[in-house]
């Protein structure tokens, strides 16, 4: 198992109200697995940041990764 910090932003916070949250996941877990696990609609996931750097849904998590997931923001 590995430990990660997951933070969901804006509307996505409703899927994990006490985010940011430290959790353990199994080796080989990718970001898409997290999205599925928390029931987040894939079309609402626009940006994924791992340790402050943009990554894709297919990114395989490593121990102590900080994961941030953002919905699309377009208002003015």
């Amino acid at each position: 198992m590995i430990s990660i910090d997951l933070n969901l932003f804006a509307t996505l916070r409703s899927f994990l109200p006490d985010a940011p949250k430290t959790m353990t996941v199994s080796q080989g877990t990718c970001v898409m697995d997290l999205v599925t696990k928390f029931g987040i609609p894939e079309e609402d996931v626009k940006l994924i940041f791992i340790n402050g750097k943009r990554e894709l849904l297919s990114y395989v998590l490593k121990d102590n990764d900080r994961v941030g997931i953002f919905p699309p923001v377009g208002g003015g």
Binding site: A10, P72, G75
Partner: peptide, 13 residues
């Protein structure tokens, strides 16, 4: 592959 608006439709400004 984008809607014209984002989550501001739900959250306002």
């Amino acid at each position: 592959d984008n809607k014209s608006s984002g989550i501001e439709e739900q959250l306002g400004n």
